[in-house]
Simulated scan of single mutants.
Amino acid sequence: MYVIAIGWLYVTLLMAATEENLTAGVLTFVFYGLAPLALLLWLFGTPQRRRKRLAREMVDDVVGQDDGADARRDQ
């Protein structure tokens, strides 16, 4: 997946280099390269973020449970 992203950035960088002025080159790189790629990587990363969040919640639930093994102040 990252190979495709690097290739896409390379192509858009070359497209930006052929623009007539600096502003057009920067805008080409940002709007054809960075913005769509950031959106694509964010969308494809959503399932992994969801799995990590659920795993973290499961660990928090297990850690937060009282097993009755530790003594309290009044015992």
Rank of each mutant, 00 (worst) to 15 (best):
V62M: 11
L22C: 01
G7T: 04
M1P: 12
N21C: 03
R56S: 14
F44K: 04
D74E: 15
G7C: 02
V3L: 14
Y10C: 06
A24P: 02
R50D: 10
Q48L: 00
R73F: 15
V62Y: 11
M15N: 13
V59W: 11
A17L: 11
F29N: 01
I4K: 15
L37I: 02
Y10V: 10
Q65K: 09
E57V: 01
G25P: 02
A69D: 11
V11K: 13
R72T: 14
A24N: 05
D70R: 15
Y10R: 06
N21T: 11
Y2W: 10
L41Y: 04
D67C: 03
D66W: 03
R72W: 11
M1K: 12
M15R: 12
Y32K: 07
T12W: 01
G45I: 02
G68F: 07
Y2N: 13
Y2A: 12
W42N: 13
V59T: 09
W8Q: 03
P47G: 00
V3M: 11
T46D: 03
T18W: 05
T12M: 08
E20P: 01
G45H: 07
R49M: 06
G45D: 14
R49G: 03
L37C: 00
D70H: 14
N21E: 13
F44S: 07
Y32Q: 09
L14P: 02
T18G: 12
R56D: 15
K52G: 07
V11H: 11
D66M: 00
Y32R: 10
V26T: 09
A35K: 09
F31A: 07
V26E: 03
L54V: 02
L37F: 00
W8P: 02
Q75L: 10
V26I: 13
I4Y: 13
I6C: 08
P47T: 00
M58T: 08
L22H: 00
I6S: 10
P47F: 00
M58S: 09
M15I: 10
A71G: 04
V62I: 15
E19K: 11
N21I: 05
A24W: 03
R51S: 07
T23R: 00
R51C: 01
D70V: 13
R56Y: 09
L41A: 08
V11R: 13
V62K: 10
V59S: 08
I4P: 05
A38L: 15
L14R: 15
F31Y: 13
G7A: 04
T23S: 08
L13M: 06
W42G: 14
R51K: 10
M58Y: 03
A5C: 06
L37K: 00
D70N: 13
R73A: 15
E57T: 07
P36S: 03
I6M: 11
A17E: 08
N21Q: 08
G7V: 01
L41N: 07
A24L: 02
A71P: 01
Y10D: 09
L27A: 13
G64F: 01
A71H: 03
E19G: 03
N21Y: 09
Y2M: 12
M58G: 04
E20Q: 13
T18S: 11
R56V: 08
D67M: 04
N21W: 06
A16K: 05
E57W: 08
D60F: 06
